[in-house]
Every structure is written in structure tokens, then in C-alpha cells.
Write a protein that binds this DNA or RNA. Structure first.
Lengths: 343, 343
DNA sequence: CTGTTAGCGCTTTCAC
DNA sequence: GTGAAAGCGCTAACAG
């Protein structure tokens, strides 16, 4: 396609080439191609034909230079797994009718230096906004306020209340999880959470603790914390069942922990959900849909979170920056076989 | 920062602003900032100072327009999980000393229409190259040859031999897996693979089948195929152990399958690795490092694959396009507790 | 309706 | 050493 001078891939076709081929001026070609209505139908046809035959692709870079905005957004992440960032990316892509915007994904790998580096690069490329995605719901250091484009923090909120932050409602999730177990008829419950240093562990647990007061159920033991591993889930379940053999429901801090809990219950010959109901958190499908039985869990609606983040960016673009603060987005219950009998 | 006319975020500082502040021409300011040597040290200092005090960020968009290249690469993926694409992205970022290049990540979600849409958008943004990442090692339809920038297919190769494709050496991985089991003293082996419609299932299995001929070990049963789930791993193990109680090693088609196999072995009271050694494939850490015992597995070196893809792009940029064909990149054995006794 | 003109922000000859 | 001028590809007035 196009010319073929020195470089292996030739020079791309320009609007000038199209105009020449159609025998019109560049300005007219531009109008024809962009659907402006001050151009004769016949002329437009000629331009369109020329553009097609030359497989003309308009140069968005030039367009962006002129317009003062590029139609790009930077996604700055520390999520090495991609577990959070991919759904958030998808949500962001959706928020602008596919293809309007393109997303630069930058992986800072938990390194502040690298993050600054990427931030600078993104600004240099004149992104229209930045979404900072963390891999935990604990507040993270603000990127600062001397950034000339809107910034939204997703999943991990900023520690500066002036920033705009979106994070899942872990507290509400804890409530929902507990309410579901109670609705399933469970009365003697326990909590196995993750690393107590994480806000997620605290918030989810707090939600469950608060919610139980409104029910006739009770916790047979204080919440257990350690880390987010399956191993801990296994160990915790053994501990709990040893001390309280009559437990009939366990709220877990994550799907990983829940998988461990399921393993131990199986080892101990307890049927799930008949003897003990188990609920996880995250809806990490590779874990939640492969267990025996499949895991009932709380889904953080990350794709919606991505949508919302993108909307905040674009809202802030024309109007004033969205007012700061941490917004907690609703999560949702996903019911599978670990809490109700499947038929 | 910068001026503050109408838009909420003001107009960005331009080179002109810096030049004015430093009392020099735009041309001189440019030279000073870019380390050209035709500028007096004193002048350079003044320009640098002005740039800093105005927190000037050069506009890479304008620069790209002039240079004819943007320093961006498009990553077009169908990998909804992000399991493959994130390591590949990291490898690509590394290949160009961090920050030289930025990557547009586009998720086509397995939809050809959306893929074409994204492809067009990327070309419109004048990316310097495109990496197409699939979520399986089966050949995928070529994006075509009328693309004006280099394209490299990663993980999923193109079905057109003229394209440049990089994919993990699954066959070699199968060999390595088997050789490891034999090196661990196993002699009565079996293969539990995944969906037989996948190239990965066939290639890995073939590698193991070929490799065993060079050893004194044997397969006690024909390879088993079904799907990539844990459930299938559990069922297959039950079947195998029922028919061949003396099995002492199982080559699995994926970590998921291996997890299922481990579960059944545990249910049957077989010790791993003492009675039966198990090896997985993929090194999907959430699975492989959380099992009992942890999984020995084959890692596809995706980060290196990303590096290599980026290098192909940039090689092709100046010189002729890299010669086409599918290149199989080496994989590596990761030894954990499912094949050797840990101390 | 169409073409001319003037830039967007920057780099690069090429005079001075 | 420094600056004026041209121009990357495109759009947006403004004349004609």
C-alpha cells in the first residue's frame, strides 16, 4: 500500500495524496472525509473513492496535535497478575464506544521510580487522563496535584482526599456475604480472613460483624487473620472445626482462603454445603468455578469500576474536575454450590 | 501549572513559552533541551532553568508527527484473563529501556469485528508496530499483509507462514516434563491432557510420547484427553488409578488438570511425590504454588516471549521485515514438591 | 461549494 | 552560537 521510497514499509498515504488523486484541494478532501456538509455530493464521492483506492488512514496524531487532545488514556498499574487491571481496562474501553479512546497500559511493578517514569511518559504523550490501578484496596500515595490531566484512582484509593478514588465496597460485601449465609439458614458462623494488614481483610470482616447483629445468628469464634493463601484457609478450617465442631457456615476473606477451607472440610468428611456452607470473596473464576463444590462468592464488579473511572475522567475533561473523595462501588453476590444445594 | 484560560486544566506549557522565558528563539531552546552541541553553555543553562520553572513537558505528539514515528506499539489481545498478555506486555516494555516506548493494550474479546476495529484505531494512531497475542497456541487467522507496520504474533501463531510468529515450544515442554519424571526415577507413567482440539494438548503430549522412547520408562495407558478443567483432572486420575494402581508418574496437560489429579490422589490416599509424581504445565502461580504439594510445572517464559516480540518489531522497523514463520521459544522446568521430596 | 491561509508544537536545515 | 523559515498531516476560519 501507499508509496514505497526508502523505508521497508513506505510512507503512509496522506490527505494530500488523496486530494491530488481526487483533483481537489486538501481542505475539500478533509471536509468530504469528515462529513462536513459544505461539499458537493459528486466531489465527496470522488474523494471517498480516492481515499479507498489509496487505503488512506487519517493520521490521528496530526489530528490530536491540532485538537489539543489525543483520545488516549493512561492506565498505570501495579497489578502484576493482571487480575484487576484487565477487567478495569475492558470497562474503560466500553465507557467510550469502542475505539474512540485507546489505552496505554503501563506496569509499574510496584516500583515508585518506575511509576514516576511512566507517569512522565504518559504526560509527554499528552494522554487525556490517567487511571491508577492498585492491586489492593489499601490507600496508596497520591500521584500529586501538579498533573495537568484528570487522574482517577481505581481499586486502590489515593491517600489524599482531594483525589478522585473508586474502590469496591468491601464493607458492603462483607455484609452481603453474611446475610447470604444467614438466609441459607446458617446460625453458627466463623470468619477466616486474610492478612490483617490489608484494608480488604478489615473491611470485609467488619461488614460481616456488623451485619450479624441484625440476625439471630452468631459467630462461634473471633475472626481469624493470617494471610491470603490456600494453606491458611486449610489450617484455619482445621483449627475452627477442632474447637467448634458445630460450625455451619464460614465467611472467607478471599476465594483462595475459601478453597483451602473447602479442602480441609473435605478431609474432615464434612459435606459442603449440607454440613457447612462456605462463601469466598473476589470471584476469581479460575479458583471459584473449579472447586468442589463451586464457590459462592462476592464479585467486585471491576468492569463497572473501569467504566466509572473512565466516565470520571471524561466528566472532568470538559467540566470541573470531579469532586474528590473515595467512592465505594457496589459489589454483587454470585451464588454457586458452596452455599446452596444444586439440583 | 501553566496557563489557565478556559479549560479546567489550562493550556500546557510549550517550547515557545520556555524560549520566551529564557529570552531565546524556539530553535535554540529546542537545541538546548535536546543536548545539541551548537549552543553556548550559559544559554543552555538559562533554557534548562526556564523549562524547569515552567515544568515544561515536551509534546511527544508533535515530535512524533515530525519524526514520522510515535514510539508506540499496539498489543492486540484475545486473552480475557490477562494471564498471557500481562507478562508479554512486561517483556515488551523491558525490551526498550523502560519509557522509550508505550503500549496500547486493546482487548478484542475474541470478536473479529472488534479486532478489526481496534486494528484500524491503532493504525490511525500510527503505532510503530503491532503484537497480536492469542490465548491459545493454535494458529489464528492472519491480520493480513496490507498493514503498513510490522506485526508479530505472540503465543498464538498466525496461520500464514509469511507472518512472524512466536510461540512457546510446547513439544519441547512435553519432552522436558517427561524427562524430569524419568530423572525422578518414575517408570510407569500416564498422560492426562486437555481438550484434544487444542494444539497445546497435542504438542505437549507428542513431546512426552517421543521422549519416553529414549528411556526405559513406559506409559501404562494411552494419553487421555477431555478438557482443561480441574474436574477432568480429578476424574482422569480416578480412572487411571483404578485401572493401573502401580502408576508412579503423571504428566498433566495444564496446572489446572494437575490440581485435579492431586486432589484425587489425595482422596485415594496416594502420597505425592512418594507414590506418584505429578507435573503440570503453564506455571500459573495462583494454581501451582497453592496446591498440596506445590506443583512442579513447565513455565512458558512469556516475559521473554514479549521481549522477543518487541525486538522483532524493532528489527523490522529499520531493516527488512523479519523473515516469516513460526518460531518456538524455549520453555523451562520449574521444580517444586510434586515431583521431588522437599526437605 | 471550493481553495487559500494560518496554525497545532516541535525539529531541522541554513543563513547570519 | 543563534534565529528565521520550512514543514510533519491535518482542521478551521475566511475568502472567493
Amino acid at each position: 500500500m501507499a508509496g514505497n521510497e526508502t523505508s521497508p514499509y513506505g510512507r503512509a498515504t496522506t490527505l494530500g495524496d488523496v486530494a491530488k488523486a481526487a483533483g481537489v484541494s486538501i481542505a475539500t478532501a478533509s471536509k468530504a472525509l469528515n462529513g462536513r456538509d459544505q461539499v458537493a455530493p459528486a466531489t465527496r464521492q470522488r474523494v471517498l473513492a480516492a481515499a479507498k483506492s489509496l487505503s488512506f488512514t487519517p493520521n490521528e496524531v496530526a489530528r490530536g496535535l491540532l485538537a489539543g487532545k489525543t483520545g488516549t488514556v493512561g492506565l498505570l498499574t501495579n497489578d502484576l497478575e493482571g487480575r484487576f487491571v484487565i477487567p478495569i481496562l475492558m470497562g474503560a474501553e466500553d465507557a467510550f464506544g469502542a475505539g474512540e479512546i485507546n489505552v496505554f497500559l503501563c506496569d509499574a511493578r510496584g516500583d515508585t521510580i518506575r511509576e514516576q517514569h511512566h507517569l512522565r511518559a504518559l504526560l509527554t504523550r499528552r494522554v487525556d487522563g490517567i487511571i491508577a490501578v492498585g492491586d489492593a484496596t489499601d490507600p496508596r500515595p497520591s500521584l500529586g496535584h501538579d498533573i495537568p490531566v484528570p487522574v482517577v484512582y481505581a481499586y486502590a484509593p489515593s491517600d489524599d482526599p482531594r483525589d478522585v478514588s473508586l474502590t469496591p465496597d468491601n464493607y458492603g460485601g462483607g455484609r452481603i456475604a453474611l446475610e447470604h449465609l444467614v438466609a441459607c439458614g446458617r446460625r453458627r458462623l466463623a470468619i477466616v480472613s486474610g492478612d490483617p494488614g490489608f484494608a480488604a481483610a478489615q473491611d470485609r470482616t467488619r461488614g460481616a460483624l456488623d451485619a450479624i447483629r441484625e440476625t439471630s445468628a452468631e459467630f462461634v469464634a473471633a475472626p481469624l487473620f493470617s494471610d491470603w493463601s490456600e494453606r491458611w484457609g486449610r489450617d484455619a478450617a482445621a483449627l475452627l472445626l477442632g474447637q467448634h465442631p458445630d460450625i455451619d457456615g464460614i465467611v472467607c476473606g478471599s476465594d483462595q482462603i475459601a478453597r483451602g477451607v473447602l479442602d480441609t472440610l473435605r478431609d474432615l468428611g464434612r459435606d459442603v454445603p449440607t454440613d457447612v456452607a462456605v462463601i469466598g470473596f473476589d470471584n476469581w473464576e479460575i479458583l471459584s468455578t473449579n472447586s468442589r463444590p463451586e464457590l459462592t462468592t462476592i464479585d467486585a464488579n471491576l468492569q463497572q469500576l473501569g467504566r466509572a473511572a473512565a466516565q470520571r475522567i471524561f466528566g472532568a475533561l470538559d467540566k470541573a474536575p470531579a469532586s474528590g473523595g473515595v467512592e465505594h462501588l457496589p459489589v454483587r453476590l454470585v451464588i454457586r454450590g458452596s452455599t446452596i444445594e444444586r439440583r
